[in-house]
Amino acid sequence: MQAEAQVQAGPWPGGRKTAVVLTYDDSLASQLDIALPALDAAGLKGTFFLIGSQIRPEQIGRWRAAAAEGHELGNHTVRHACPKSSYPPARRLDTSNSYDMEMMLAEIRTMNSMLTAIDGKLQHGLATPCGQHLAGGEDYLPALRASGLVRYTRSADGASDGALDPMNLPCIWFDEKASGVDMIAAVEKARRDGGLLIIGFHGVGGDYLKVNGEAHAQLLAYLKQNTATIWVAPLMTVMDYAAR
């Protein structure tokens, strides 16, 4: 099923002022150990973009349980191939420079199958590795649109208060330099603007590119206290609502 060209950001369910989506990338242990319990304690649901090669066998049951509890599992490809320019020269990693579009789409298709084996769902969304959509220096987003492999693609930076391209959704990022106040301020701006805010995290209280665990907890507490005006839901749920 190919996504529509654009969907409108708002109005949101129950007259809420904004929709906030909490996304977590890279299949990190701190997400299972810290982020998921914090979300569950606050009664909130998040979207976790998993890298197939980073999922350890002993984690599969935990990811499956998270999906059963209403969290979304998303596609972050099998190997997370990024352009060489995204990494310091000393790091030996798979790079998308050696891919072509056919290879990248095949990897996305394979990761969809892995996710279905975990959560039982036939459709998933994608977060592009490193927030870009290049394979061998060529933009694979047009081919991905035509393929119907994913329902949405989260890639670009920024927030949106107007029409959205489901295949190039904006996202803002926080790391250990961000306080709870900083993150709450971003949500408050989205509430004033009335749009969609997708927040991206990697590690939570651990791992890399991490956000401080207490700051993350402050954000969740604020969101829990303001459910009358802020809708927090997994990204697939929000996009399905916006496309209605």
Results as ranks from 00 to 15, higher is better:
A66I: 07
R145I: 08
S179V: 14
K189D: 12
G10M: 00
A81R: 11
K45C: 13
G43Y: 09
E72N: 03
P129L: 01
S98F: 07
D139M: 15
L223C: 11
L141C: 08
R16V: 12
E58R: 14
A65W: 03
V7P: 02
S27F: 03
L39A: 09
L50D: 08
L197A: 05
A41C: 13
G70I: 01
D240W: 03
Q218F: 10
E107M: 02
G162A: 15
K224T: 13
D175S: 04
S85H: 00
G46V: 03
N97W: 06
A38T: 03
A127S: 12
L115S: 10
Y208F: 09
Y241T: 13
M101I: 15
C130L: 10
A42L: 09
F174L: 08
L126N: 02
V238T: 14
V181W: 10
L36I: 15
R91C: 02
E4N: 05
P129E: 01
T95C: 04
V21M: 07
Q31V: 06
N212R: 01
V181P: 01
D40T: 11
V21Y: 01
M239R: 02
I199Q: 11
N226R: 08
C130P: 00
G120E: 12
G131P: 04
V20M: 11
A186Q: 15
V181R: 15
Q225T: 15
G70L: 06
V187H: 09
V232M: 09
S147R: 05
Q218A: 14
Q218R: 12
D240H: 12
L219N: 09
G200M: 07
M114P: 02
A19D: 10
G148T: 05
T77N: 04
S96K: 06
G180Q: 04
Y208L: 03
V150Y: 01
D193S: 15
Q123N: 04
G10S: 08
D100S: 10
A42D: 09
D100P: 07
L223A: 06
G10E: 06
A5P: 07
A67T: 00
S98V: 11
Q218L: 12
A146S: 14
G52C: 11
T237H: 14
Y140S: 07
N112M: 10
H202I: 04
G194V: 05
D25P: 09
A143P: 02
